[in-house]
Each structure stands twice: as C-alpha cells, then as structure tokens.
Design a protein around this nucleic acid. Sequence first.
DNA 1: GTGCCGACTTAGCATGACGAGC
DNA 2: GCTCGTCATGCTAAGTCGGCAC
Length: 772
Amino acid sequence: MASTDEEEFDMDDEVLPKKKKNGNDEAVPKKKKKRLEEEDGEINDEDYDDDVPLKQLKKKKKNKEKDSKKRKPDKVVSGPVKKKKKTEDVKPDKPKSDDTAMKKTAVKALKKLDKAERLQYAMQSFLWWDSVEPPEGCQWRTMEHSGVSFPEEYVPHGIKMKYDGKDVDLTPVQEEAATFFAAMDPEGMHLGDPKTAKIFIKNYFADFLEVLGKKHVIKDFKKCDFEPIRRHLNEQKIIKKAITDEQRKANKDDRNQVMFRFGYAIVDGHIEKVGNYNMEPPGTFRGRGEHPKMGKLKQRVAPEQVSLNLSQCAAVPRCSVPGHAWGDIKHDPRGQWLATWKENINNQSKYMQLAAQSSFKGKSDRSKYNKAALLCSNIEKIRKSYKKDLKSKDQETKQLATAVWVIDRLALRVGGEKDTDEEADTVGCCSLRVEHLEFDPNGEGGENREIKLEFLGKDSMLYKQTIDFGAAMYNENNGMGEQVYENFKSFCKKKKPDQEVFDSINPTLLNQHLKTFMDGLSAKVFRTYNASKTLQDELRKHEAGSQWKNLTATEKVVEYNNANREVAILCNHQRSVSKAQETALEAIGSKLATLKKQKKELKQMLKKLNSGDSSGLPVRKSFEEMTEDVQKAIEKAKKMKEAAKTNEEKIAATQADEKAKQKKRDLADKKFQKAHLWEKVPTKDQLVKRIEAWTAKINKMEMDLKHKDDNKEVSLGTSKINYMDPRISVAFCKRNEVPIEKIFSKTLRDKFNWAMAVQPNWEFNEKVALEG
DNA sequence: GTGCCGACTTAGCATGACGAGC
DNA sequence: GCTCGTCATGCTAAGTCGGCAC
C-alpha cells in the first residue's frame, strides 16, 4: 500500500480479524499496525516490530521514506512500473507529497471510489518486486486474515421425495442428501452418460443409505423418485430469475460484505486478496472421467476440522459459526496457505490461499518462467545427452532418454503412478501402458514409423494423436525420431497390453536425472519452456511476414490467437463442446445456408429485371401486425413480473416472459427468411447493392463459422494462464501497438502485473533468469 | 530405496457479467 | 433499452514434486 495515507484509504474494521489468539476481543498489534498504515502508508517487513512503540515506528518509517526518496530516481522503463491509468482500472492519480493541491484532488477522486475499488487501488500500489524479500525459506514475516467463510446451515424445504410411488418422510439431514442428488442434471456429464451414471448412482446410494439408517423404508434406488424435489429446485431457479434489480443489488451487497470480511489478508503490512475464502459446501463428489468415487457425499466441513496459519502476533479471527472454534492455529511462515482442512472423499488436504494476483503467486509465477527461460541455455546439452542415450545398452538409461524425448518433443506430462481403485485411470509419459500405443495404425506396413497414442490424460482428457516418428520434423537436425520409434517397439515387445512401457523408470528417477543437467529442473518445466518458446517463435514468424505492418491491431490479435492455439494444441488443452454450443454452431450453419439461398434468389431477380421482365418478382409482407403482437406479449409479461408477489405469481410471470421471448425469436426468424426482399418490386440498383451486401455477409459468416469450429474443442485460456511467459505477450503488444486489454483480461493483467514493464524487444531466453 | 503425504500448480466446467448488435 | 452470445471468473478436481519416515 505504498502512499496510502489516512485520507486515501479507510479500511473498515470488518476487513480485519477481531479476536486475539486467546479469544478475547482485543487486537492490540493489529490496531497499532493499522494506525501506522493509515497514517504513513505501507508497513514494510523491517518496519514492523511489535515491541517498538508506535511513535518510534512512525519516525523510523518517515526517515526511511526520506532516504529512499534520495536514493531512488523515478523508474521509467527499466523494471516493472505501475500500469497506466485505464478507464476500467479506475484509480486516482498518485499524489506528490510536495504538492498539496494535487494531493487533495487525488484524495477527492479516491473518495468517489467504492470500497472494493479503494481496496483494489491499495493492492495495486504494492509493487512486491521492489520490496524486501522475507528471510530465506520463509514466505512471509507477518500474516493476518479473517479465516474461512462457512456456508449457511441447511434450511429444509419440506418437499417430499417418493419411494415406490408414496411420499417419504425425511429428516433435514436426509432431505439435504436427497436434494444433492435431485440437483444433478440428468443429462449432465455424470448422469447423462450410462457408464458414469452407474458409478455415480452406486456411490451416491450407498452413502444415502448410510444417512437414512438401516431401519429406513428406502432400500432400492430404482424405487426412488427425486422428481418432486427436482421440480422444486427448478421452480426456485425460476423465482430467482424473477427478482427485481433492487433485490439483485441487495444480494450483491451481501456477497460484498462477505468479501470485505473474508476476502482480504494483510501480509507483511500489505493488503492481499484471498483466493478461495468460501468453504466448499457439502454435496456430491463430482470427480471427472470414470472416477471410482464420483457420487459419494461430500460432507460439510466444520470449523474444528480447519487449521489456520497466521503470525504469532496476529489476532486469531473469530469463527463465524456460532458455538464452534477453529481446529488448530499454526504459525508457519514457510507455507503460503492461510487455512487447511481434509476432505472426506480422498482424504486429501485442501487449502485456502491468496488469490492469483497476490505477491505469493506472482513470485512463484515469475520464478517458474525464469526457470523455464534458463532451460534455453541447457536444452542443447540435454538433447545431446538423450540423443546419445537413446542407443544405450542399459535399459534404464535408454528408457530415461526415450521418456525425456517424449516429454520434450510431445509435451506429455510426467505421469505419476495412480491407484485406479481410488482415482480415475489416467496416464502420462511414465505410466503409459502398451495398450495406449498402436504401431502402424493404418496398416501401411513396410517403412511405416507411425504410432497412434491414445490415452486419457489429466482430467480424463483424451490424447489421441498419430505420431509419424519417421517424419522430417522428428528427424531433422539429428532429431532421432526413428530411434525413438525403435525404442518404443523394443519396450513393448513381449509385454501384455496392461503392462507399463517404461517399466524401468518412474517420475522421481526421471526428475533426479533432469536435475543433473540443471538445478531445479523437472519434467513440467519442459511444458512451460516449450509453450513459451512456441508462442515466441510463432509470433516472430508472423511479424517477419511482408504484410505484417499493414495489419490492423485486430488482425494482429487474430494472429496472436493463432499462435496461442498452436500452444494449446501442443499441450492438449481441450474443452468439451456443450449442447448449447453445438446448437449455436448449427444455427449459424443454417443461417449461412439461408443467406446463400437468398443471394441466389436475388441474382435470379436481377437477371429477370435485366431482361425487362418485372412481373412475378417476390416481395415480402409487412410484419407490423406480428410485431405488435410480440410487443403486447412482452409488455404483459413485464407487468406480471412487476406485480408478482407470491412464488406462484413469480413462476407464472417468468413463464409468460419466456413465451413472449420465444414469440420474439420466431418473429425474428420469419423476418430473417425474407430479409433479402422488399415490400414492393426493387430497382436494379437496389438489387445490385443488396447482392453485394449479401456477399459480404456470407463471407463474414463463413469466416466466423470456421473460426468457431476451429476453436470449439481447443481451450486457449489454460496455456495463457499457466504456460506462456506473459512477458512475451506484453512485449508483442508493445512493439505492435496492440492494446494489452485485447490479449489479457483484467484478472490476467493483475496476475501478471510484474510482467507489464518489459521492453518491446524483450526475448524469452537464458538471459531472463539473470534479471531476477 | 520406496512409499506416503503436504503443499503447491494446473485444469476444465458452471455460472455470472458484460457488451455488441438490434 | 433489451437480448443473446461471449468472455471472465469462481470453483474445485487432479495433477506434479519435494521432503520425510521407515
């Protein structure tokens, strides 16, 4: 919070934890820090000492500021600096201490901002890359926060499910468990697929029976009817849709109140955003793919199961659940986590951590990308080594070399061992089985060097690619593709389909091997390195094109997205196509067909007109009457919505609204079918112009459709968030005058704030690591 | 040497917010 | 001003990896 003074930033008490560790309501160290913060701005690590009186601290702080002003010239281009003011990043100009008028203006501007914006401003002011690092091995010196926000207790709705056609009485706990199932979409990814539905129902029902108890009448899932509850939940959704703007605003305010209380932490005197401050609510476990535990009941987590991590001097936050207390309080500055608990499905630890835009995550990110950049100077050494080892007579060495080749060239994950009774059967490089490889998949015989790799990777995403190990791209510059093919063949020889291809190695061994080349090198660094390198190379390739300078910023963004797509394909980042997306694509396709038909008709009309015959040319009727009808339906629904008081009235209003909207859509469709025509016979000139307009429309729609179709199964976001060094993108934007907003959303600009100051000619290479 | 586990990163899906187009 | 489609964000599952105990 550099430069935040009392007038600039007034953080309410509710943001801060209120209780001390021993449970009383005093918060002496916090108050002292807060006052200092309000009066002098940020408190740096070395400033804060619980045993030093406040006045001394303030004096120390002022002296330090004087010194730093003497030392530090304004940074302009070297090193990260604050972002320029943009319309959406509303923040006042930073006041200069020697200019009272300017300061007053800035303070006035600040007061116009709402609380969330002021907090955002305070966070943006902290340039962690310019601050002093905590002692080695520590992530922080002081940390305080408000703990975890728990979901509200279950409120029974009283709707009875049926068993064997009859209503069943359930206790609130049992009703809650029944409601979890009723909330599942019968057509969704879990219940929509017969394979997963079987697992889901089996697990759910076993847990449900346990909640019901042995004496309960419910014994057979087939006789269970959750439909009444499902109908009730759908009605609730409809009612929710019908809320007024005022209610919507009130709901948002309520959410903001929770965010102000739990969503911020103070780390080493700076405000930081907390990521997942809402405790996961109970429900059904929604594991992906064919997870053997999907459908099991995820229990409600009690405060007693939660451990908090904060500094010794910090006040322990009051637990928000009446009558409950935190399980444990820890003071471990080596960890980034703020709270931890265990979930009951896989007995795994879960954590509450700072948000992606925090200093913790920023430091981790920067260090990750610097490590990947350092690989630039080591990659040749590593490649040379594995190329030599590919022919080794020692099986372990040969397998290590082959696995590293695969990780380097095909960007596979390392693939740790998994227990398929506990988790979905997914694999990576080291856990590949013979059944995942198909040699010569097209039965070409002879010199064919193709292998079809087909397996489920992380999140049960299908990896299905036929790799031609004989292709030039894997063999030029001594790429050794053919040797890798031979190795695969020998590793699979005499093995059963369910046996591992790389039976002599494992991820630990592979990572140990990688560390002999470079400190801190592990398999996943290759994915970051290859993603960043691919992005940079692709962008440079486009920029070297002769037409590049003539492109508009929008066209350059398209090229950037194309490069991004190359990376996403390399890393196999997929997304499933939803039914809504499929329908939308079909709709565009059908619209395109209509436009083409209309263009053909227009051409025929022109031909006829040119021949001097204007008889029988098609015209369209007025849509006035239908438009009026639709307007009436919309107004009626609007009035019903405004007048609705009871739930029944709200449901009726929403239904009327949906009917009116459907009428409107039908009318729009009818209008579209006749959009190329006039109400009276057109002139030749009108026809020529419309044919031109339709040609342009068709071209645009064709491009749009192609773009959507190309991208429908590729997820560009994952590589942008996790793999491509953001400095490559920032430098690209700077040297091409492309606004960074076109590439990075607000969240990403905050996450990568440390990368925003790079020069236009910045390069992803080994020198990066030396920059710090 | 090996297996386990804690701590963190990476990932896709659901939903809500927003803005382009009418 | 409204609608609809797209994009951003939140949520939480599912990976990786290092350290520790045996």
